[in-house]
Design a protein around this nucleic acid. Structure first.
Length: 424
RNA sequence: GGUGGAGUCGCCUAGUGGCCGAUGGCGCACGCCUCGAAAGCGUGUGAGGGUGCAAGCUCUCCGUGGGUUCAAAUCCCACCUCCACCGCCA
């Protein structure tokens, strides 16, 4: 949710941000008008209500006095009650209208975000070199089959398209990745969390997933639950309606959870394999910090993501996502993209967003320090999304015979150095 | 799923229609006392909005949402959450 003060003091900055995102700058003026309307409604209600309270006290005092005086007061009080009710309704309507326009506005982008759409990202780092194969590399679907690690055919029978079974070493590979990721997170000071994957509407709404992203959210209508698309939702909402002690920030959580995505509108994209699926597991980092520290924390989250990819010995690059391709709550976003040999391109495996105070305002999460009580900053970053990471490992570390060399960092967790084709 | 009980300002708690934005304690902050501390004493201590340069003035919030009333923490209804017991499942 946008800061009202910023909206009033510097509407041009918000308009410019909207334009850079390819969103409607006129929403700014709609919000300003709604703010104006609300303020006059509040003043009217406050005045009437103060009068009502005064008269109420007079009625109580006159209770023992003469009848005609009492009746006159009561008559006046009745009229006033009707007016108050009317003013209250108008204020409530004005409140709702303002909130609606406020919610329609996306976060103000950070200075330096590349302008443009999906293809206008800026590559800010690359690590490792795409490997030269002296044989024709197999894609992860074929490798998964050879190794007895991935079964998409039976998953289609049981659950339909975009589902998969991890079997045998595939299952073990995920468990090893979870443990490696959690170990890294914990030694960096994160609090490990296993959050709920079903949440009630306020948590989903507060994290901003019921806006443009709503069509990608699974909903359990009979019970009014949403299935989370990322642990970001339950981790952000963990401190909903709380005031955190400024001295205890930053608070960092590493949440492992299943993630559910409808993938509406992606028909035809990545239909093969496990790059784009309806359900997967992920270890997500989440930070609550002061507004001043947000940008620096963003860099730290990116560094932790890179540390993890480095440990997996996978070539990747880091992109600074362009303004038109940011989620509505992100002021800035960096994606790490791993090299996928059989596609000949880099594909997103992790993503970290600085949501500044945008998300905390919606979720009503604040901090208290010497400067008083105010919204804090929230940031999130993927540490390890299992299927895409598994794809990157299998494809990059494969050998001619279909075996896959296990990255050194993962060996203690997997208990083996090499995955070999099985005759299952 | 059934029955009963409960949700008040960081924590505990008083409060059954106007004198209540709300009692008291703990905690916390500051001060006094002390060589220093503890104890003791004193003062202060929720959040949000409107208005104002400011001091201030004012409105809202007693789980949430409705209702009754001139007036609701207090009465009524629905919902949410928690606790206990029973049933069921793991």
């Amino acid at each position: 949710m946008i800061d009202l003060k910023l909206l009033r003091d510097d509407p041009d900055r918000v308009r410019a941000s909207q334009r850079a995102r390819g969103e409607d700058p006129d929403l700014v003026d709609a919000a300003l008008a709604a703010d104006e309307r609300r303020r006059s409604a509040v003043t009217r209600y406050d005045t009437l209500r103060a009068e009502q309270k005064t008269i109420g006290k007079q009625v109580a005092a006159a209770a023992k006095g003469p009848d005609d005086e009492k009746h006159a007061l009561l008559a006046r009080a009745k009229d006033l009650a009707a007016e108050v009710k009317d003013a209250e309704a108008e204020q409530a309507a004005a409140d709702d209208a303002l909130r609606e326009t406020q919610l329609a506005l996306s976060n103000v982008i950070e200075d330096g975000v590349p302008e443009g759409g999906e293809d206008d990202f800026v590559v800010i780092a690359t690590s490792g070199e795409p490997r030269e194969f002296d044989f024709t590399p197999r894609d992860h679907v074929e490798l998964g089959e050879l190794l007895g690690a991935i079964d998409t055919a039976r998953a289609a029978k049981v659950s339909g398209a975009r589902f998969y079974y991890l079997t045998g070493v595939g299952a073990l590979l995920e468990l090893a990745l979870i443990n490696l990721a959690m170990q890294q997170a914990v030694s960096a000071g994160f609090i490990p969390m296993l959050p709920p994957a079903l949440v009630r509407p306020p948590a989903m709404e507060g994290t901003g997933f019921l806006g443009q992203a709503a069509e990608n959210v699974f909903r359990l209508e009979a019970d009014d639950f949403y299935l989370v698309g990322t642990a970001e939702v339950p981790l952000a909402a963990y401190h909903m309606d709380e005031i955190l002690d400024g001295a205890k920030l930053p608070l960092r959580y590493a949440g492992f959870s299943p993630c559910f995505r409808r993938e509406a509108g992606s028909y035809g994209k990545d239909t093969k394999g496990i790059i784009r699926v309806h359900q997967f597991d992920k270890v997500e980092m989440f930070s609550f910090t002061t507004p001043d520290e947000a940008a620096a924390e963003h860099q730290r989250l990116l560094a932790w993501e890179r540390e993890f990819l480095d440990a997996l010995e996978v070539p990747y690059r880091v992109i600074d996502v362009a303004s038109g391709d940011l989620g509505s709550s992100a002021a800035r976003k960096y994606d790490c993209e791993a090299w996928i040999p059989t596609q000949g391109k880099y594909r997103e495996v992790t993503s970290t967003s600085n949501c500044t105070q945008f998300q905390s305002r919606r979720l009503n999460i604040r901090m208290r320090d010497a400067d008083g009580v105010r919204p804090l900053a929230t940031l999130n970053g993927t540490l390890c999304a299992m299927p895409r990471t598994i794809v990157a490992i299998l494809e990059n570390h494969q050998q001619e015979d279909g075996s896959v060399v296990v990255p050194k960092a993962l060996r203690p967790f997997l208990g083996r150095d090499l995955l070999t084709p099985s005759t299952r």
